[in-house]
Design a protein around this nucleic acid. Structure first.
Lengths: 256, 256
DNA sequence: GAGTGGTCTAGACCACCTT
DNA sequence: AGGTGGTCTAGACCACTCA
């Protein structure tokens, strides 16, 4: 179909250059982005425009875009288009520092929306975390957080009412960390963090404006005070290209 | 094309059940897997078999499989088929414990292959890590590690020859941690870990038997001894569905 | 309302794994 | 050698975004 394709090294050359057209296209875009030709936030040409420019089928174009998305170089806004990803923020989930603080420190603009707060029975899973009965009530707070106007994570935070009675009456769009510290005198002595790459599906995906199945990062945090009491338990679903986790530790003195 | 499709709630019912066929198919499989109907390691029917069974186009079948792959429920072996993912291993990169140890502790069978070892100039990036000149020599060790016979990560480890002279003469398929401790008397006082979801591309992907663009997790570890000297620097590329990161910390006493 | 990506179809040929 | 997934084509219609 294309003279150049016919001339290119045959598929029998097993260690020869890669023949896959979507990877060639990926390379072209990746180079443009790295060289600054496409700055963060820049919009890509539409898939149909690229079809016309390259003569490739739309599926092939999309495969190249998916590669770049998986690498975190670009992202899509549903039915709007493809855009160059801004650099990720660096997040240390073991430090009790507010999202608003560390994002601002990195020269970005954070924002938060509270989606939902209520006091409800914690159920089996949360009961295991808090060491309490499944029927015990717990504050459940759901928020969406954005950086420079782009939603980057949705979170579900559980706080025991013993720790912070009347929590839901406060403004929860600002720092929960600061609120717990200043208003309730809570301090954090230990943090347990679990992380796992995940897929953003259905509700999470749509809250983040992502396609179902988009790659994400799930971060589970359990914060304890000096008495070993669970102060806060979070489940954070991040868009995979928006965050980089950094943890710096010294082993506990008495560790075996 | 299908009577039931015609009867189903129309697309105008914006909060109605999801119409997407690949998600319906995803749900069917996810349910089968969760209920144990398809145990870890089980092979899926071929895409063409599923085409025949469901009457859907192959692209739609594949979209459903991609969803499950992104969620970590299934994985593919190149040109062999789709398989149910075994549960992930739990890994604490801040603890200086050997892969062979913690994988075995979790009832799995670890193995390691050394791909490459050499003493070479460290270059700009590594020089910044070691606080040394780019022309200084460093051991570069590349290994592939598997669990129950399935490759799960490729890693590139840098060790300074001042810390471990003659390193390349040892057996590097077994524990590097143990080797550094017992043979070179090295101890670890601090670890800095960075993590980011990534895509496995080209060489990494093919070493792991994954398709280029498959989701992965990049873990960067820098281990320091008591004098603040960099003992070891690792770059680990994991298949995203094979690992779960767990970090448990107490803040350093003098922390601000 | 025009343009965008999202979903779906129905083919084709290929490289590679498996037996 | 036969079967598998990997790549690619060339359409179609839809829901949704944006101006």
């Amino acid at each position: 179909m294309n003279k150049f394709t016919d001339i290119a090294p045959g598929p029998t050359a097993s260690s020869g250059p890669d023949q896959r057209q979507y990877l060639a296209l990926r390379d072209r875009f990746a180079l443009q982005i790295e060289r600054g030709g496409l700055p963060p936030g820049a919009k890509f040409p539409s898939e149909r425009t690229l079809q016309f420019e390259t003569g490739l089928a739309r599926g092939t174009i999309r495969e190249a875009l998916f590669q770049l998305e998986a690498e975190g170089l670009i992202y899509r806004r549903d039915r709007s288009g493809w855009y160059v990803s801004p650099p990720p923020v660096v997040y240390d989930p073991t430090r009790w520092v507010s999202f608003l603080t560390y994002v601002a420190e990195q020269g970005r603009t954070p924002s938060t929306e509270t989606l939902d707060v209520q006091l409800e029975p914690m159920g089996e899973a949360a009961a295991a975390v808090f060491g309490d009965a499944p029927s015990s009530l717990v504050y459940v707070l759901r928020r969406r957080r954005s950086i420079d106007g782009r939603p980057v994570l949705v979170e579900r935070i559980l706080v025991h009412p013993d720790v912070a009675p009347g929590l839901s009456e406060h403004d929860l769009d600002s720092s929960l960390t600061a609120l717990l510290q200043s208003r309730y005198g809570v301090t954090m002595a230990r943090t347990r963090v679990e992380m796992q790459p995940c897929a953003l599906v259905r509700e999470e995906a749509s809250l983040l404006g992502a396609k179902s199945g988009s790659p994400g990062l799930l971060v589970l945090r359990t914060c304890f005070d000096a008495k070993g009491r669970v102060v806060e338990y979070d489940e954070e679903h991040w868009r995979h290209d928006t965050v980089r986790i950094l943890v710096d530790t010294r082993p506990a003195p008495a560790e075996g």
